[in-house]
Design a protein around this nucleic acid. Structure first.
Length: 308
DNA sequence: AAGACGAAAGTGGTTGA
DNA sequence: TCAACAACTTTCGTCTT
């Protein structure tokens, strides 16, 4: 595709692997996901920063962003109206045409604005081109079907992007979308469900493994831990430990266990923050994993190993 | 002192009558 | 349409390292 990286920014190696399914480029030398690595640098401070901000926000007055008003501003509309008035006036034909023009230009204008917003959010999240295009497509369909009425343009954009991510197996959490678009998580979920239902887009529940590379990379966990985590998830799926559970929680727990076993321990809180779940959820999944899979021995083994 | 653990109560979404 | 239900969160006290 159009975007691809030649050198790994981490180790400078050129041994890069392009995983089409996941839309990721990973480096075979250092094991890190190159594209995601770049995301991390951006996101790391942003997430910390915005999480702190989000916490403040919960107790204080919401910070208002001018963007909202900009999106709904009407000053652009006048020009078009004036132009139309000059030439109209004479007969009904022109009136009709004017009316029609207005609608189509309204849609066009909305699209232009919305797609710009979509692009902004998408680049903030460093999403692959293919996902951005899919998002645009979904949004365009939604506008044509008049699904934006009664909803803010931004929330539909966020919903469309969220759906696009899921379809391409490059899932982002609702929290991440929420942070990038300044739309409430609830709202995004709502519009996401609404537009996918209305447009008849079917989306399979996302696979926990799809989150591993990204989470692991922002936690700076090595490739062995990553693949161990994926193995754990697969084992868990084999005995139906995963159905009905939130995929991010499972991914987080698997990663937590894998890190323990590889002597790269991270606290539950660290993992929880990255995955956008609580420690409690990690504990619950973690406990289930320990109960059903035979992981205790391995953990103890690696503990012993560490002491030496 | 920080992390891990688990109980209890609350939230929002899904499901089935 | 509403009530029961499961998953997850929040909060908080206690145990462990």
């Amino acid at each position: 595709m159009s975007m691809y990286v030649k050198k790994c920014p981490e180790c400078g190696g050129t041994n890069l692997a392009w995983n089409k399914e996941k839309g990721e480029i990973s480096c075979r030398d250092c094991g890190l996901v190159v594209e995601e690595k770049m995301v991390d640098f951006d996101q790391e401070w942003r997430e910390v920063d915005s999480e702190a901000a989000a916490r403040k926000r919960r107790t204080g007055a919401p910070i208002s962003y001018t963007q909202f008003d900009q999106g709904l501003g009407t000053d652009v509309g006048r020009k078009a109206d004036l132009y139309q008035l000059d030439e109209a006036g004479k007969n009904k034909f022109f009136r009709l045409r004017k009316w029609q023009n207005r609608i189509s230009t309204a849609i066009e204008r909305n699209l232009k604005l919305a797609l710009a917003e979509l692009k902004r959010v998408s680049s903030y999240l460093k999403l692959p081109q293919s996902v951005e295009e899919e998002g645009s497509r979904i949004y365009t369909l939604a506008v044509r079907k008049g699904l934006v009425r009664g909803r803010s343009m931004e929330s539909v954009v966020a919903g469309a992007l969220y759906a696009a991510c899921r379809r391409h197996d490059v899932p982002r959490t609702l929290d991440e979308l929420s942070e990038a678009s300044n739309i409430e998580k609830k709202e995004i979920g709502r519009t996401y469900r609404f537009i996918t239902r209305e447009l008849g887009i079917t989306i399979l529940p996302s696979n926990p493994s799809d989150y591993i590379a990204r989470f692991a990379s922002t936690l700076k966990l090595g490739p062995e831990t990553q693949s161990r985590a994926v193995e754990i998830i697969e084992e868990a799926q084999g005995i139906e430990l995963t159905s009905g559970r939130g995929p991010t929680g499972i991914a987080a727990a698997a990663l937590y266990v894998a890190a323990l076993m590889n002597g790269e321990k991270r606290t539950q809180r660290e993992v929880a923050d990255v995955a956008g779940v609580t420690e409690v959820t990690i504990r619950n999944r973690y406990k289930e994993l320990l109960d059903e899979l035979e992981l205790e021995k391995e953990i103890k083994k690696s503990k012993k190993k560490r002491k030496e």
